[in-house]
Computed example of a mutant assay.
Amino acid sequence: MQIVFKATKRVEQGTGASRRLRRAGQIPGIIYGADTDAQAITLDHNELYHLLKKEAFHASILSVDVEGAKQAVLLRDTQWHPFRQQVLHLDFQRVDANQKIHLKVPLHFINGDTNPAVKLGGCMISHTITELDVQCLPANLPEYVEVDLKDLEAGQSMHVSQLTLPEGVELAQHGEGDPVVATALTVKGAATDEAAEGAAA
């Protein structure tokens, strides 16, 4: 289900105008890209503050309704107040259905609790990365990539190359190598208990 939110066109610009908007419970923002002129907009702070708490808002194609005209966009930048729970500015990029997009999507780890190394071997699974850089056409953008930990053994690591990406989605990797996604670490206490049991036997 696509997330839809409203915005209005913003005429007044500059620091003073932005400050007045924020005092009135509004957020200045901008929509750019897709070979179209950038458009200054105003958004409702309360609505966007709650949307920003949703994981999907950061990794999905969004629909912004600017005075009745809907545009498909991606959230590209969020500026927060240094110490208040206040959003200062939002940047959105227009999406072209025929152009590949590049975005970080979250990783969802499953079967960590039922993994034999955790249940029987006293291991703890460490999540080394929690999001993945991907590129794809907008229609193929996944909300998340699933990481199945059921077969991860004690002392082993799972790498990015072992993940199953949805159809039409490619890894947009920076640099070389095969980054570690998760590792089954042996907890010191568990290792000591096993050694003690072995000695007793």
Results as ranks from 00 to 15, higher is better:
103 L>P: 05
106 P>H: 01
20 R>W: 01
180 V>T: 14
5 F>V: 12
18 S>N: 13
107 L>Y: 03
181 V>Y: 04
168 G>W: 09
11 V>G: 12
168 G>L: 13
117 A>K: 07
89 H>T: 05
155 G>M: 04
81 H>P: 04
92 F>D: 03
35 D>C: 02
111 N>K: 10
10 R>Y: 04
185 L>R: 14
184 A>D: 03
67 E>I: 06
190 A>N: 06
147 V>A: 00
183 T>A: 12
7 A>P: 04
152 L>G: 03
84 R>S: 12
11 V>I: 15
41 I>R: 00
71 Q>Y: 07
11 V>C: 05
102 H>F: 15
9 K>W: 02
122 G>L: 06
49 Y>F: 08
137 L>P: 00
168 G>E: 09
94 R>V: 01
195 A>H: 14
86 Q>D: 09
57 F>L: 10
199 A>D: 10
96 D>Q: 14
82 P>H: 07
167 E>H: 11
83 F>E: 03
91 D>I: 08
53 K>R: 13
199 A>G: 09
84 R>D: 10
106 P>M: 05
133 D>F: 07
51 L>N: 11
31 I>W: 00
54 K>P: 02
168 G>N: 08
92 F>A: 04
24 A>Y: 02
196 A>N: 13
54 K>C: 04
126 S>H: 14
70 K>Q: 14
102 H>K: 13
39 Q>N: 02
90 L>Y: 13
48 L>E: 08
163 L>S: 07
74 L>C: 01
179 P>M: 07
120 L>C: 10
33 G>S: 03
15 T>A: 11
140 N>C: 11
122 G>P: 06
60 S>L: 11
115 N>V: 00
51 L>A: 06
153 E>G: 12
178 D>W: 10
69 A>L: 10
22 R>Y: 01
168 G>C: 06
125 I>Y: 01
198 G>K: 15
6 K>L: 04
39 Q>T: 12
53 K>F: 00
25 G>D: 01
156 Q>F: 10
139 A>S: 14
118 V>L: 09
37 D>Y: 02
55 E>S: 14
162 Q>G: 10
184 A>Q: 06
174 H>L: 11
53 K>Y: 00
99 Q>L: 06
3 I>F: 02
119 K>V: 11
118 V>R: 07
26 Q>C: 06
137 L>K: 08
192 T>N: 14
